[in-house]
Write a protein that binds this DNA or RNA. Structure first.
Lengths: 230, 230
DNA sequence: CGACGGCTTGATCCGAGTCAATCCTGGTGG
DNA sequence: CCACCAGGATTGACTCGGATCAAGCCGTCG
């Protein structure tokens, strides 16, 4: 539970109230709510932000760093549902419990607001209600696209789709900086780490990409990747 | 586009305005809206209700029958995103375009309302806004559970999960009536029709289920299925 | 009764998983 | 400044689960 974690004063987190307004892409009612009512918290790499099954009392927004959300099977198999980069809202659930575990992939800062406060606001301010629906609808769209990937695409197609997705989210279109490990990518794409690695070298051999260092990928032949995408 | 279809007077559809109130499980603002403003339409087996990419001007609710929603890859590989049974709302998109194709699996009747009408209502009536969010959030939950299935479960686990899911949606807990074909199940579970068939036979051999006729499945050993589920 | 569509079963294949070494490389301490 | 170390990444050899290809079977409907 979150307050417990904060109360416990764990060394890997620090809380700071009333942060400077978050510089977001578009200003929205929800962004304003985060700016006005949010408390920012720092999480070290691999620190848990919330666990599956915990009460979903808070909603989060990434200020810096990257967050992964995932589900586990009883024997430890992991499926990452999404990566959350700067500006992304995560942890918003209509239900009372979180349905994923959230962890910081790198040292990260997130802003937190009480879900009950947002819901109360939404009852009066339709812009907030619309934003909450919009966030959930956006999550749904990404999940649905990912269903097609996991259900019907082969390894090469999965990796190509992933690279294009990451390229679309970063600022530089042709250079993809990966904040996450090969294991994280594998658990997102429903593959193993070895297959991800092999597929990346294969794409490099085919001159579709270049990998100067393992966490940086240059898209050399976007049309080849696009062909694999659909 | 829908009005075209209705206007075309296709033999496989008929429209009837102001239907008797839909008997739903719980009464909600959204259910009331469907009852008051809905037009019911009949679709024959395999008729398309809307196509991926079409304008999402309408929201649908199943009165009778079953509907599948799916995405296609360019080479025809299909991923079914969900099956919609009596009482389910489908086709509600925050975006302006449908992201799936919807088809009737069996002869079906659905009620339709204009999305713009619901959105306008939602701006004034917070109960409607909450219901719209709730429908999308419910879709998201199902999609997220399905991600785990498609990304990390083996064939037996997928089929067991599917049977338990269908059992939970029907009225009779131990007898599952399947409105969809093996091919539909395969495309929902990210398998082939042969693997679905083999896995069902295998579960029958293990005395977990019984298949008196192909579209009816008796759950004989629920704990065995539950063990495969997580 | 026959034919067709949906389903099952069998034989074989192949893409991704598994198991097992290396190979970086970025960080640490001497 | 350099040698070492540990964790992440790559590569190779082999396995295996599910896909593919190919018959049949069954039940429903004309």
């Amino acid at each position: 539970m979150l307050m417990q974690k904060i109360g416990a004063g764990a060394a890997d987190k620090s809380i700071r109230l009333a942060p400077q307004p978050v510089p977001g892409p578009a200003s929205s009612a929800l962004a304003d709510a985060f700016a006005l009512m949010g408390a920012s918290i720092r999480f070290d790499r691999n620190a848990e932000i919330y666990g599956e099954g915990e009460a979903s009392d808070y909603v989060y927004k990434v200020v810096s760093g990257t967050v992964r959300t995932y589900k586990l099977l009883s024997d430890g198999r992991r499926q990452i549902g999404g990566f959350h980069l700067k500006g992304d809202v995560f942890g918003l659930e209509a239900a009372t419990e979180h349905r994923f575990t959230a962890e910081a992939i790198a040292n990260s800062v997130v802003v937190v607001v009480k879900k009950s406060a947002l819901v109360a606001l939404a009852a009066r301010d339709h812009d907030i209600a619309r934003d909450l629906w919009g966030v959930t609808a956006g999550d749904l769209e990404r999940a649905q696209d990912h269903l097609l990937l996991l259900g019907r695409k082969n390894a090469q197609e999965r990796v190509a789709t992933f690279l294009l997705e990451m390229a679309g989210r970063g600022s530089t279109e042709a250079v993809v900086e990966l904040p996450m490990s090969r294991q994280d990518i594998a658990d997102y794409l429903g593959l193993t780490i070895e297959t991800v690695s092999r597929t990346l070298t294969q794409l490099e051999d085919e001159a579709a990409i270049e990998i100067p260092v393992s966490r940086r990928i240059l898209l050399r032949n976007r049309s080849a990747l696009n062909r694999l995408n659909a």
